[in-house]
Design a protein around this nucleic acid. Structure first.
Length: 115
RNA sequence: CGAGUAAGCCGGACAGCCGCGUGCGUCAUAUGCCGAAAGGCGGCGCAUGAGGAAAGUCCGAGCUCCACAGGGCAAGGAUAACGGGUAACGCCCGCCGAAGGCGACUUCAGGAAAAGUGCAACAGAGAUAUACCGCCUCGAAGGUUUUAUUUUAGCAGUAAGUCGAUAAAAUGUCGCUUGUAUCUUUCAAACCCGGCGAAAGCCUGCUUUUGCCGGAAGAGGAGGAGCAGCGACACAAACGAGACUUGGUGCUUUAGCAGCAAGUCGAUAAAAUGUCGCUUGCUCCGACGAGGUAAGGGUGGAAACGUGAGGUAAGAGCUCACGGGUGAGCAGGGAACUGACUCAUCCUGCAAACUCUAUCCGGAGCAACACCGCAUAGGAGAACAUUAAGGUCGGCCCGGCUGUUCUCGGGAAGGUGGCUAAAGCGUCGUGGCAACACGCCGCGUAGAUAGAUGGCUGUCUAAGACAGAACUCGGCUUACAGACUUACUCGCUUU
RNA sequence: GGAGAAGUACUCAAGCUGGUCGAAGAGGCGCCCCUGCUAAGGGCGUAGGUCGCGAAAGCGGUGCGGGAGUUCGAAUCUCCCCUUCUCCG
């Protein structure tokens, strides 16, 4: 994740939720906003509704891995927040990856070569 | 072989590729990038990287702050047979007692009820003490009936003789709720009838189905009364004087029986009257009243320790014998405790009711706390003075602080530290029944800060459960697929 | 991560120094009054969860977040779990 920094502050999360574009699937929800910087910032949210600590960690790691593998196809200069929904606890890595790419394409975050 | 009991141990492994946190080494750079600042930021190599419960946060410690964390007092809290282990503990080990199990073994908040207070609903006569019934003593209004059987223990006088005991029945009162299905009240499905409406069918005014309302009917349920049944109690005991004749009346085949009227006889010293009993003593029952008693009484978790005898008006640990509990003495044991004997005996349960006894505990928590940075209120440090009152100091007291001047300087959000070597782990030896302690040798084992273990592929296998460190340890509790080891118990079979 | 508080009918709740308690009170639900109609307001009445038997009426068991314990007896006292909420930079 060479070109990516994580979103940490609650302020930033609120701003992206308010001003950003969003799209939703049964497994994930995605928010994105242009940040006018050369790199991307990514934030991952997994609430207690999803499960206990072990389950939440697994979901978060899979989402991160899915982003890492496909990092090159994302356009730079965006703040992205990925929110897991309850179904993500039972989803496999492949499903999560597929969902992430679909949602990103819908918001126009992917470079045109990949599409 | 099967069924169990206890203790311990494991909680997937290996290989390849891509990726993450930390440490070390090395190369590189920075007058750079992010940020207001403090501060942070790269590549490569090597090493290392979640649990038995990391969980719950239920106990005990370290550590930090509350000026000191010191002494005393009060309050509050905790623990609770006994001995030991431990830094400490509410933990662990051993042992005692109680309960459970055929047994291996398991479970127990297991001090004191004989210091005191309190509580024990309902039921029950009575709940830690009671006289409601009963039993006994004294006084006392008063005193149902019939039949059958058996027997002669007792049976004062006038004055004769019969009476008693047992059983059953009638009658009355109370209780039980077993039966009956006689009456009644209420709820009530189906069947039936009528009215109104709807739908369908056609033969167009009928049929079928269905809804609502009303009537009738009520299988059955519940309650009450009655009857039957069952049980308990009362109806007792002693003594008695009426008899005969005639008449008529009623019942009746007669005999006879019932009662009425008149007369005669009997009881009184006499007469009169014209009653059916009277007198004295004893005895039985007894509404009710006074006292004694703690044997018995459908209750209750619990009823003055239990059984038997003596004793008494009736009774009572009132006395005696045997037995149980408790306390003291004696003996054994380190102690809890155990034991036979002696003496005493205030003998229901509850202290997870108050309380008493013994021991322990100051409070808060790493989001503590320290430092850096940062605008306003606040504040901090140093020096000097004061400590009377008042105020304040994380319960109160002892005790500390308070005022003035000078200097520094800023809550929130942010950064760095705290942060991991620790009462640590393992082998062996010694001591100890054990928990554990000591000694030698070896190892040195995550440290993040929006929070590091993931993805893909292959092999092995039965491999799937519960589950993710957040300052650190010692325990406890709770969750958990399965695999293994050791010891022991019971049962069956074979030898 | 740490520190606390609460849990009772459909909802809000009282009862929590143990006893005739399975439940006070209110909302709710049904009927009536008021109004052209509705709401609000007023009056009267009513069942309470769940399991079994039964056509219904009714009868019995269980039930105060769950499970153990103490006690003759637990919504209440004690312990262990579960769930929800609040606070701490």
């Amino acid at each position: 994740m060479k070109n990516t920094v994580s979103v940490k502050k609650n302020k930033d999360f609120r701003l992206i939720y308010k001003r950003g574009k969003s799209s939703v699937s049964p497994v994930l929800a995605l928010y994105a906003r242009k940040n006018k910087k050369p790199s991307n910032r990514i934030g991952i949210t997994v609430s207690t509704k999803v499960g206990k600590a072990v389950v939440r960690n697994r979901v978060r790691r899979r989402i991160r891995e899915a982003y890492r593998i496909n990092e090159k196809s994302f356009l730079p200069g965006y703040d992205i927040i990925i929110v897991s929904r309850v179904r993500a606890a039972k989803a496999s890595f492949r499903e999560i990856e597929k969902n992430l790419l679909e949602l990103s394409a819908r918001l126009g975050l992917l470079s045109e070569e990949q599409e």
